[in-house]
């Protein structure tokens, strides 16, 4: 763990004149973080969403609009974007959690697609043309770096580390136990006194909030957003595929998934250029098929050593 973190900390020295690889690392960190966010709801609480692009887009649009219309600082935008996404998560969750299984999945898909159509047609937020963030003086304060992109690397890595720590803690917390209980058997969890509605909404708020913060980072990184880049349905699918491939309901899953999927996506873009749009999704789909046949618990299952039997209760 420490060795890996050490390598990641010095890696930018080797990548400073290799923008393609540097960008790929930033995207891996970002997607792993999005995967963590999805995993809280989909992996631990067992509520499979294919609409999380909505929260990513809402985060990105919130901070960008606050910056464009009110001149607010992107760090404030990050808090606002996360909060907006979390609030949207609760609003989406209240009706959608009344549905179970496949019906819930379809509902999240419909909500996200509606948001895409809405933003594409809504001129105040740039419509299909999207929004350009004004170039500001570079630095941590404005969360913009123009010549040297290495700071983005460290910010993304820091955010991923923070979210990983949060999920690690969550897994061992009371909240984590209750989410897994809900995933395994909702009726049994109710019979013990846990409200499915309450805990699912909390999981949704946290999940959406994390993805929303990721959206703000993305907007600051690319400095341009449109519905196609932050609200597209295929993006929602990718957010879900990453932890599913890596191992849903595990801390390592989203990171393993991102390490495998992001390079496939980036290299296929180079190889097939314009004509190869969504070739990466084709490969993803194939991988998912392999995984679901041979390793239903995801890549994390391949690496999982026999867990130490911690004698946390002295017998």
């Amino acid at each position: 763990m420490a060795a890996l973190l050490g390598i990641l900390l010095v890696l930018p020295m080797a990548l400073s004149d290799r923008p393609f690889e540097l960008r790929m690392m930033v995207v891996i960190f970002l997607y792993a973080m999005l995967g963590h966010g999805w995993n809280i709801l989909g992996g631990y609480a067992g509520q499979i969403s294919v609409g999380h692009g909505l929260f990513f887009g809402l985060g990105a649009y919130t901070s960008t609009m606050l910056s464009l219309k009110l001149g607010l600082n992107p760090w404030f935008g990050m808090a606002a974007g996360g909060a907006a996404a979390a609030a949207a998560g609760v609003l989406v969750g209240i009706p959608c959690f009344r549905l179970k299984g496949h019906y819930f999945v379809i509902a999240t898909l419909v909500v996200a697609e509606s948001a895409f159509q809405l933003f594409a047609a809504w001129d105040w937020v740039g419509g299909a043309m999207g929004l350009q963030l004004p170039v500001q003086e570079q630095g941590l304060l404005n969360l913009q770096f123009h010549r040297n992109k290495v700071p983005y690397y460290y910010i993304a890595l820091g955010m991923l580390a923070a979210v990983t720590a949060l999920v690690w803690w969550l897994e061992r917390s009371r909240f984590g136990y209750i989410l897994r209980a809900l995933r395994d058997d909702e009726e049994a969890a109710r019979s013990l006194g846990f409200s499915p509605a309450l805990y699912k909404l909390l999981a949704m708020a946290l999940s959406a909030g994390i993805v929303g913060v990721g959206g703000v980072f993305f907007a600051q990184y690319v400095l341009f957003i449109d519905p196609f880049s932050v609200l597209a349905l295929s993006f929602s699918v990718v957010i879900a595929l990453i932890p599913i491939l890596g191992g849903a309901g595990t801390v390592a899953g989203p990171m393993l998934g991102a390490i495998v999927l992001v390079p496939i996506s980036e290299y296929s873009r180079v190889l097939f250029s314009g004509t190869g749009r969504n070739v990466d999704l084709l490969i993803y789909g194939f991988l998912i098929m392999l995984i679901s046949v041979y390793r239903p618990d995801g890549l994390a299952g391949l690496f999982r050593a026999r867990r130490e039997r911690r004698a946390y209760v002295s017998g």
Partner: peptide, 18 residues
């Protein structure tokens, strides 16, 4: 209806957390 992904102990831990 046990929580099937959990151990016996964790099944009961969830209940204690109530």
């Amino acid at each position: 209806r046990p929580f099937s992904s959990m151990t016996f102990l964790d099944n009961v831990v969830v209940a204690s957390l109530a």
